[in-house]
Amino acid sequence: MSLLVVEGLGIKFGGLHAVKDVGFTLKSGEIVSIIGPNGAGKTTLFNMISGIYLPLAGRVMLNGEDVTGMSPNRLAERGLSRTFQNLQIFQSMTVLENVMAGFHLQARGPVLSDMLGLPGSRRRSREAEAGARLLLERVGLERAAEREAGALSYGALKRLEIARALALRPKVLLLDEPAAGCNAVETEEIDHLIAAVAAEGVSILLVEHDMKMVMRISNHIVVLDYGEKIAEGDPATVSRDKRVIAAYLGAQATEAANADG
């Protein structure tokens, strides 16, 4: 059974189709990548799936439930979390506090209890800290737990944002350009992290411009151009598709395929 089903999603801005009739499925533990040139509609598609935009057409099914247009917090409660192109990190908070914030969003208690620091509130805080430390270890940032987040390298901040998204214990994780702006070493670290998360059963929907990374870790690829799906399939199939080569990949696809073959 597919965990996430996207059917015929579409939206217009100023009378123009930003995304038109896009659909695909995502199974448990699978990595599906959405690729295409700048302006192809990738982030707009993410925004519809994650409840930021309300689609004008189509629907989103999560674990068999129609969640089309559902707010991001309600989607998080149902197991869908995401990161953004632009880092959403609390720079002046510690690395640990950033991840703990994800746990508190997931398990908020009574306001009065939290304000007064009652036992239930203190217990939730201890549990959040313990869970956050485990996630920091998972993303390789356990030694930076007490550092101010703003002091981290860009690649480390990307891994921190993934850790905070994982604090919501998602079944489906949307990653919007997680390797953007990273050097080769940082990209490899994120590559391995994504593969490890998927191996644990989390379904991952990925938007990424690093085609070597996409070809290496994806189970399935969906290609957009001008808001429409022009191709989909496994990496080898997509890399040979003439429409994809003409629209976006060019020689880069052939190089990535040869590197993996």
Rank of each mutant, 00 (worst) to 15 (best):
S2L: 03
V6L: 04
G8V: 02
L9W: 09
G10P: 06
K12A: 06
G14N: 07
L16I: 13
G23Q: 14
G29S: 02
G39H: 14
A40I: 08
G41Q: 05
F46Y: 13
M48K: 11
I52F: 15
P55F: 13
P55Y: 13
A57P: 04
G69Q: 09
M70E: 12
R78W: 04
S81D: 05
F84Q: 09
Q85T: 09
Q85G: 08
F90N: 07
S92E: 14
S92T: 15
L96P: 00
N98R: 10
Q106N: 12
L112G: 06
L112T: 10
L112Y: 12
S113L: 07
D114R: 06
M115Y: 12
G117R: 11
L118D: 11
P119C: 10
A130C: 03
G131T: 06
L134W: 09
L134Y: 01
L135R: 02
L136A: 01
E137T: 06
R138C: 04
A145N: 06
L160A: 08
A163F: 00
R164N: 05
A165V: 04
L168F: 10
R169Q: 15
K171R: 14
L173N: 03
T187Y: 00
L193D: 00
A198F: 00
A198D: 01
A199D: 13
S203M: 04
I204C: 10
V207N: 12
V207Y: 08
H209F: 00
M215G: 08
R216V: 04
S218I: 03
S218D: 01
I221E: 03
V223H: 08
D225G: 02
E232H: 06
P235C: 01
P235K: 03
V238A: 03
S239R: 03
V244H: 00
T254I: 11
E255V: 11
A257P: 03
G261H: 13
